[in-house]
Design a protein around this nucleic acid. Sequence first.
RNA 1: CGGGGCGUAGCGCAGUCUGGUAGCGCGCAGCGUUCGGGACGCUGAGGCCGGAGGUUCGAGUCCUCUCGCCCCGACCA
Length: 574
Amino acid sequence: MKYSRLFGRTTRETPADAESVSHQLLVRAGMICQGAAGVYSYLPLGWRVLRNVEQIIREEMDRAGGQELLMPALQPFELWEASGRYVSFGQSLFTVMDRKEHRLALGPTHEEVITDLARRYIQSYRDMPLMPYQIQTKFRDEPRPRGGLLRVREFIMKDMYSFDVDEEALDKTYKTMATAYAAVYRRLGLPAVMVEADSGAIGGKASHEFMVLTATGEDVVIHCDACGYAANAEKARSRKDVRDAAVATEPELESLVEVATPECRTIEEVAGFLKVPAYKTLKAVFYVADREFVLAVIRGDLDVNEVKLQRVLKCTDLRLAEADETSQAGVVAGFASPVGLRDVRVIADDSLLDARNLVAGANREGYHLMNVNLGRDFTVDLVADIALAREGDACPVCGAVLKADRGIEVGHIFKLGTFLSEKLNAVFLDDSGASKPCVMGCYGIGVGRLLAAVVEHCHDEKGIVWPMSVAPYQVHICTLNPDKGNVESVAERLYEDLRRLGIEVLLDDRQMSPGVKFNDADLLGVPFRVTVSPRALASSSVEVKRRDVTQSQLIAVEEAAGRLSQMVRQALAA
RNA sequence: CGGGGCGUAGCGCAGUCUGGUAGCGCGCAGCGUUCGGGACGCUGAGGCCGGAGGUUCGAGUCCUCUCGCCCCGACCA
């Protein structure tokens, strides 16, 4: 490609509305251009990178046993009603009306469609395992797009689905996919970690996310460097035993006492006033779950994890109760507790099972109760782990200290099980002739987000530093003083020779000053830069520089094409 | 949806408080001089000041409504 003909223009100034590094650099390099909130065009350079990323994913999916196909983006709304997932997707589901007033969904994902498709072809256990996938544009009306390509409303996703005969076979497929995902990230030069995750609106039993740890990430990953335990903060567990064992395991239940605690509304205030540690208190938090008023209780030193709570409650909408809602329910904010509370569902964190003689609200303005005990003084409807794991907590596996880091979710795999195949009647006959639902899994990678993650991870103050595996071009030739001597003809010949050798080349043939060309080359991030200039040609050489190192080397003109193609191939193999 | 911010030339911004001929830088076009890290001179093109309504002799500026975009929170590849 001749730069003078390239559609796209670099800019010196960073776009005003770009916050994340990848957003800034991709726009400045002329690789993407925003159309609407969370909607982007890929210009030729960006599109070349995207296709390269796609190709890597495609190769790894094929290697893992996948078969590429293409499903429609327009989906009958009835499928979403049949699966029931139009509820969990809610407002995020884009829908359109056709001319006959028939409602269609713009596919945010394709479990319904693939299950509908698979059930027509899968009849026997001999037809499985089956792993169809596609790379296709998805639509999700996100509440808040952000960070350039990091979170958008229209995006290209690789989505694979697996159909197996039983849980054991699914486990095997799931492992195969995890390995394939790891291979994709490795080829992109991304250090991605696999973490336990919540399956959210997709549904299903178990799921894992692949995270690239960077400060710009939207998610928080809780991880243990000692044993390798890692989980999304939404899902992460931690040990809840109290360090001070003597206090923690008081065997005797003391008798209930009401004490005045004027103006003590928070755990800190109450604990400070009564001179007890926070873990000797009980925290009561009121929520509205799908319009039902519920109470979550947890040991005072812990916080409620709303994702876990939502999962336990099996509700689609969960939010903190507003002040007027709590007072309407007869709750005294700051002095509330489950003791004596009626007609409200109470969910307790399992940290309360071992806790004795806690301080809790007296449900009376200005008073708390001491020596409150679960079972004796109040009962709960449900006990579960609903606590937020935090940095500094003890690892649930090995007990070492947990750390927290931000991460970009670049992949998510799910064990769906049979809930969809049962709803949509995707069944097969096993070897004994019995009819069984297919055991499903699904596996997603956002291609554009992955591209953005590469930029977030691979850049310097000058611009992008593409790994060879996805670079828009492999070699970027800059001519300096193209109208002097034989600069132009040498550059042209090198360009043609490299192309003949199968190398992807960008030739900057513009009439621009050296500074402009070098800065653009750094911004675009092509792995090898070749400078053809009168100075280097004086020694019959061209200058070759790798984007990721500072020094350059001179290579004789006649050897340049051969040496470069060798270097490119080495970088590709690495 | 809650909170905050911003819409003026392709991009980055000033002008809005205090109403009176729409500006600057980059980029773009032409000519010339330059040429190893975003060169310089001269000339020039480019604006429904997001939209609608109102106040006024007069609105980029004041008022009302509306649309869009960004950031922080509740959602996800």
